[in-house]
Structure formats: structure tokens, C-alpha cells
Design a protein around this nucleic acid. Structure first.
Lengths: 224, 224
DNA sequence: GGGCGGGTCATCCGATCGGTTGATGCGCGG
DNA sequence: CCGCGCATCAACCGATCGGATGACCCGCCC
């Protein structure tokens, strides 16, 4: 999958510009050594904290950020991912975030994906899987470790961040700053119904206030 | 909620009722002479001070008040504009204030517009521009001198004096969906202060709920 | 036919919010 | 020096929100 198949992307082959973020210097060094053997992948920056990674992503404009979720002090990998991914909507199309971590708990996975991660790999993965995942991420394609993929599929079936049509209606009015009474009137339903829907929306978005819902909806582009 | 005040000007065209306010008698006389040549515009009162203009606006109920900003003693043109414009929300729909002054500094312009002026003209303007502006103002339409328009546009692009730095801090936390208590803790201030700031933010953004503030801020790109 | 998910509504209550008033301190500019 | 804008805080009150609970109706699918 290096040259013949995909063709054009490798032809020009300026290399995928990568930023590595992990709070352990040893791990970073190991990754650098490993990645140095990967053709077409160039590490342009190392970050030891989430804040550093966010700054580097903005400044260096890499194609991919390899992000650990456990970062010790400061913002965690999820928050860093969120901030970096948020910039991905802008003109230049920010970097894709590929999470590389040790654990595969449901909470970690869902939080990372919700935050906008493009892929989720486990450190136990084989090196060539990592290389392939980085190349996939550089093109915005999702890459998941096998165990992670399984959990994600399970989640797809269960409760995704999927809102029903009616809930989106409510959310739309909410984003206009309307109170429950006004939302009710706008949609020809009762305030009680509005509150019921809002409660479910909060659950699905993982927030507990209207301002939070508007922010979350904006961030995840659930609104026009 | 602005009254469109279709006004008696259009239909039967009985003429636009105008009050002129300028502290220089000579200028007033000149304006009167000039306006006497303008069809459809009738000067129903002259004020030599801000207080006088406010009183006349209430009593004579003109369609437009032509207001100088520099008024020597007493309240200045901005304050007079504020008081007259404040009455414009009431049932009858008060008079529109058209500022006619010599200077076009940022401070003057923004203060006049904030005070509720419908238009802002320079005395250097050509007479027919003045006539046109008065007719526009009578219908509540904004009329600006070219240099003034330029500055206003600049202000639109630069949201600088829009919100104070502290207010942007508050707004940032608000957009994360935090409650007043949490915002207070995040910024090391009291809830009371948070509420005070929020009140001012609502004013400036023209909203009255937190969700509305988040939406407005997002729309106007006041946030990251 | 009986679940099942989505939409609708009601009621209750504590917590929070929005608005107001009033007051203090601080830096800046006339 | 005094005024003004900004930030800070307090106390109060009515309105609204958030959360929980229970209920009904409808369309769909096994």
C-alpha cells in the first residue's frame, strides 16, 4: 500500500508531517526511533503536554497528531484532541488526531472519538499497523485497533450521540436562546415536552445545562 | 422590537416634522434657511441646548431631531440623543435622531450610535445629502456620511471594544456550559461578579439567556 | 397481539438563573 | 482633583431551569 496502489499521494511524497504527544520522554523517544524507519512519515514536533500539543498543532500545521490520552498534569489527551480537532473545521483543515494509548476502556474510546479523534490505536499494536494507521489518518480515514473497533461497533448499536429529529428541532430553538416556554410555542408542544426532550438531549450530549448543549452542538456541528 | 413608524411622511406627505438642535444660533439660522428650500421638510422647533431638545421632542413629537453633538453648556448631544431615543421605544414611537456634527472621531460616532442615533452626518456634507438623510431618518433608516460609514464598517470587523477582556473570559467559561458557581471558581471571583458581567454581556450581545449568549458569540466569532 | 421506541403531557421540588440596586476600589485622563 | 469606566462584591426576588416520576398514544416489527 506504499506506492503502486494509492499512487498519487505517494508519488509527490513530501511525507506525512507528524506531531507526537506523550508525557513520557522515553515513550516519545521510542516512537521517534520507530517512526524514523517508516518511509513517508516525518516527525516535525514533540509535545510533552496537551497544551504543548495544541500549540504545536496550530503552529506547525502537521497532517497528523499522535496523541496519548494519559498526559499527567494539565489538560488530558481528550481535551487536547478536542481543541485540535475543533480547529480542523477551519480553511486549512486542521490536523487529524490519532489517539495512541494503552487502555481501551469504553469511556476512553467514546470520549476520544466524541472529542474528534480520527483513529484510536493501542500501544500494543504492531509497528506496521501503526504506520498504516498514520497514513490512513493523514487522509482523514478512521483507523482502529481490532479490540477498539469491536467496542465501537457495540456502541454504534447502543446509544450513540445520535439525536432524533425532534430533539434536533428542540436543539435548534435552544441555540436561538429561547426559553422553554418560547420553544414550546415555536414547536406547538407543551413546556413539559420541551423539558423532557431537553433532558434527553443533555444525556446524549453529556452536558447538564442549556449553554453547554449549545456549545456541544456547535462543536459537533449538529446545527446549521 | 423597533417600531417601524411608517409615519405620516409617505402617504399624504404632509411633510417631515423636524426639530433642529444646535447651540450656535447662527448655525441654526443657516440650517433653517437651507431646509426651507427642501420640499417636504418642515422645521417645527429650534433648540439651543440638549435639555431644550429633549423637551421639544416630547412636546412637539417631531419625526426627526437634527442633533449637534457639541452643545456647550448642559447635557451634550450624546446624552440628549440617548434621552430622546429612549422615548422612541414607547407606543407613539418617538422621533428618530439624526446627528449632524463637525467631527467624525471613533468615540463620537460610537457613542452617538450607542445612544440610539439613527444616522450620523458631517456638516461638510452636501445639502442634498442632508435632505436625503433626513428623509431616510424619518423612516428609521440609517444614513451615514461616507467617512463615518467607513469607520463603522471597521468597527464591525474589529470586535475590540465590543466586550471587555474580562467579559470575554466569562463568555469563554459560559460557552463550556458552566454554571455561575463554576465560572466563579474558574476565574477566582465571586458568583455575584459573574452575574454582573453576564448581565452586561447579555446587553451587549442583545440576548437575555446564557444559551443565547453562546449562540451569539459563536455566530460573531467571539470565541475560539 | 404484545413489546418497543419515539413523541407527547403532567406534577412536583430544589437549584439556578436573570434583574436590580447599591456599594467599593482602582487606574486613567481632563 | 474629580469624574469615568471597569471590575469587584452583596443581598434580594421572581422566574426559570434541571431532574425525577408516571402516564398516554402511535407506528413498527417480531
Amino acid at each position: 500500500m506504499t506506492e503502486s496502489a494509492t499512487g498519487p499521494s505517494d508519488a509527490a511524497a513530501p511525507g506525512i508531517r507528524l506531531v507526537v504527544c506523550d508525557d513520557h520522554a522515553v515513550v516519545r523517544a521510542g516512537l521517534l526511533a520507530l517512526l524514523s524507519s517508516a518511509p513517508g512519515i516525518e516527525v516535525v514536533g514533540e509535545a510533552g503536554s496537551g497544551e504543548e500539543a495544541v500549540a504545536m498543532a496550530a503552529k506547525l500545521r502537521p497532517d497528523v497528531v499522535l496523541m496519548d490520552l494519559q498526559l499527567g498534569a494539565g489538560i488530558d489527551g481528550v481535551e487536547a484532541t478536542r481543541r485540535i480537532a475543533a480547529a480542523a473545521t477551519e480553511p486549512g483543515g486542521g490536523p487529524y488526531v490519532l489517539v495512541l494509548t494503552t487502555y481501551d476502556t469504553d469511556a476512553d474510546i467514546t470520549r476520544a472519538i466524541e472529542a474528534g479523534a480520527t483513529g484510536y490505536l493501542l500501544k500494543a499494536e504492531r509497528p506496521d499497523e501503526l504506520f498504516a494507521a498514520i497514513r490512513s489518518a493523514a487522509q482523514g480515514r478512521t483507523a482502529l485497533s481490532a479490540p477498539v473497533a469491536g467496542r465501537v461497533m457495540a456502541h454504534m448499536r447502543a446509544p450513540g450521540p445520535q439525536l432524533t429529529a425532534r430533539e434536533r428541532d428542540i436543539l435548534g430553538q435552544l441555540a436561538r436562546g429561547l426559553g422553554n416556554r418560547d420553544i414550546a410555542r415555536a414547536l406547538f408542544i407543551s413546556e413539559a415536552t420541551v423539558k423532557t426532550h431537553l433532558g434527553r438531549i443533555y444525556d446524549k450530549l453529556g452536558v447538564d445545562t442549556r449553554a453547554g448543549a449549545v456549545a456541544a452542538a456547535t462543536e459537533r456541528r449538529l446545527l446549521g
